[in-house]
Write a protein that binds this DNA or RNA. Structure first.
Lengths: 126, 126
DNA sequence: TCCTAAACTGATAATGATTATCATTACTAA
DNA sequence: TTAGTAATGATAATCATTATCAGTTTAGGA
């Protein structure tokens, strides 16, 4: 993996945003400051960074993949009203992968927990 | 919701298959016996049935949505070698949604746990 | 410093999954 | 039987993502 200015920019942009953006959302943020960057470059680098474990790729929240600079073990909640994505602490179910292994004998490489519902903020409104 | 022969066929085809098919996979199975059915009809009805809670739509296993006639609470494991999808019993983490609610105050409507790894069968093959 | 190979880029075409459109058909309640 | 509406099949459109490719940048020697 060779250094590239674009990758640097993409990683910084992701780190500055706690909104778990999709590749396209991040692209739209970045072109404001770097109008020459290509959409494919954003996709490419996000995937590369996720492969290397430098960032996280989150599936299953909606139809698009989201990216997260927080690589610590944690899960996600998406509010079906405001569509905001929240982090859920890992210790909510820290032994779950181990349980699955004990019960099934399957080797677990990745555990993805996603919760859908109404966040506290949207509950009080309305 | 009005009766339709196609919906009946789609539901039966899903019930007969434990393979958690995608809409397209199910379509390819069905046209063998019902060559006139349209792909859009399969998508439409699977989504409709999932909305009504008659079947389950599973996200996050791979890029396509899979469907499951088993509506009992349970989770899924996908083997990264053979791509087979296995059911994981619910009691592996039966209190997890409750835990999230207690910790965050968020109302949980849907909990989706998906595990990726190597199944027992593929482990022994090597 | 200069040179080359490999990695990276931007633009865009291609893909794959899914949804929208629309004219036609099938169900159902009166 | 009929009218109203939901459903259908064919296909165009969309959306997210990946592949392609010619030109550019980077990095590690000579």
């Amino acid at each position: 993996m060779k250094y590239s200015k674009q990758r640097e920019i993409i990683l910084r942009a992701l780190e500055m945003n706690v909104i778990h953006p999709t590749a396209d959302e991040l692209y739209k943020l970045i072109i404001k400051d770097f109008p020459n960057i290509g959409l494919a470059t954003v996709y490419r680098n996000l995937n590369l960074l996720a492969e290397k474990g430098i960032i996280k790729k989150i599936y299953g929240l909606d139809d698009a993949a989201h990216f997260d600079h927080n690589t610590h073990n944690h899960h996600h909640f998406i509010c079906t009203k405001c569509n905001k994505i929240y982090d859920i602490p890992y210790d909510i179910a820290s032994d779950i992968a181990d349980n699955v292994w004990k019960k099934t004998g399957f080797t677990i490489e990745k555990t993805e927990l996603s919760f859908h519902g109404i966040c506290k903020n949207c509950q009080t409104k309305n």
